[in-house]
Design a protein around this nucleic acid. Sequence first.
DNA 1: GACCGTCAAACTGCATGCAATTGGGGCGCT
DNA 2: AGCGCCCCAATTGCATGCAGTTTGACGGTC
Lengths: 252, 252
Amino acid sequence: MPARATRKTSESSDKVSMICRALRRAIIEQALEPGAKLPEDSLGERFGVSRTIARHALGQLAAEGLVELRRNRIAVVATPSWQEARDAFDIRIELERLVVRQLAGKLTKSQISELTDHVDAEDRARGGTDAASIRLATEFHILLAQMTNSPILVRYVSEVAYRCCLTLSLYSRPHSTECAINEHRAIIAALAKGDEAKVMELMHHHLDSVANRALVAPTPQRGRDLLDVLAPYADEVTSDRVVKLPKVARRG
Amino acid sequence: MPARATRKTSESSDKVSMICRALRRAIIEQALEPGAKLPEDSLGERFGVSRTIARHALGQLAAEGLVELRRNRIAVVATPSWQEARDAFDIRIELERLVVRQLAGKLTKSQISELTDHVDAEDRARGGTDAASIRLATEFHILLAQMTNSPILVRYVSEVAYRCCLTLSLYSRPHSTECAINEHRAIIAALAKGDEAKVMELMHHHLDSVANRALVAPTPQRGRDLLDVLAPYADEVTSDRVVKLPKVARRG
DNA sequence: GACCGTCAAACTGCATGCAATTGGGGCGCT
DNA sequence: AGCGCCCCAATTGCATGCAGTTTGACGGTC
């Protein structure tokens, strides 16, 4: 199977996509914290475009879940709840298992060295900022997805990986990236060997441990959104002026 | 009031979302065939809004993969390749296994009867148009996803289900819906019983058989896009001029 | 000082206008 | 007839303008 990435879906060279990319990167690198305001005017001015374009970009990012858009209100960087973060990781695990299942034993030499190079870059970035490390780790997974040559899979893995990236910045304590990098190397090795079951297990464990290391528990002091922080407490209040969250088949 | 949907992310009551919903439905019911042109003007006129809004809606649908947007060109209803269809189903299987895994044994009485009611509606619609049957079957899966109360999962399952719906209209022969309906009932039963492994197996088999029944093979006589039909053959041609094709075949 | 109503600035929702690009029909040439 | 060229109607890309909504600051009242 051939090597190169596919970019048929979106992300051509129009201004909207450029702004999307810029904002996405700013968000996952935490240059823009969750909850940060994103007024159309300011964005337009900053990027040298009109509000129309900025607005359109915000729409796209909202569709990806990186931005929250409320009618007549300023858009803000999304602040996923802890449960949403957990859900995102659950989905991500399944999607990435699918990725490595398709890839096991099917990678070309050049693809493998491309992956190895990327992990080397991760290694080199270990001394740098946390943001850079997180971004590189995320991009490793996206790189893998791209090698499946399935545009849909690329899109979903990218989206959910970015979301996880965002939640990591919200809920994780400063974390050591070393084991993650080693796990990346192990995954590459298993992919090259073509051991499908093994690589799926590795990927599952890798993501699960990243999630568990990061999402240890709802850590209120880091949660930006008051509503989310107070949600569990509001449950105990038996007044009818408290907005009850639709509570259905939540596991737990 | 049982288990209503979550609608936090998108789809509020603004015009863009209304048009999205309308177009989405038109597409999955095959009122708009794959390849159909969607000029911003016409859409705006038809829905009584400006081009700005129509454009924005097209952007959203393109992000969902239902519409193809090429720069400076008229937007068209997406025409997924056979391989993309297969990829979409693969992803869908994993996502929906996740859905039923979370739901097994956790449904309330009212949710179960809601599901049963829906399948009854599917049964009643069996005499009607194919489009209606397909739409109802798809909506059953979305209903399930909504009961997980995980907005992200709802979004992804909805999207991928719509995509599959679209591909079904492209590649499937007129199919009998009966077994699918029975499989829906079996899934509800297993969910109620709480047999997690069983329900995952059922869902897997259900989707796999739908996919296999529909996506039997690249069926050239039904494929709308000549380029896609010829793609596998072009792979074997080592010339670099294979892109140029004579004229397009007939429609429908 | 705390509470509340009022109001202007800020911002969004949407339509319209203008320039740039496209593609398809008509026309001439061979 | 077949082929290529050119031009114009159709259409998109984008900015701007106007109206409606929200925010939060100010001043009045208790």
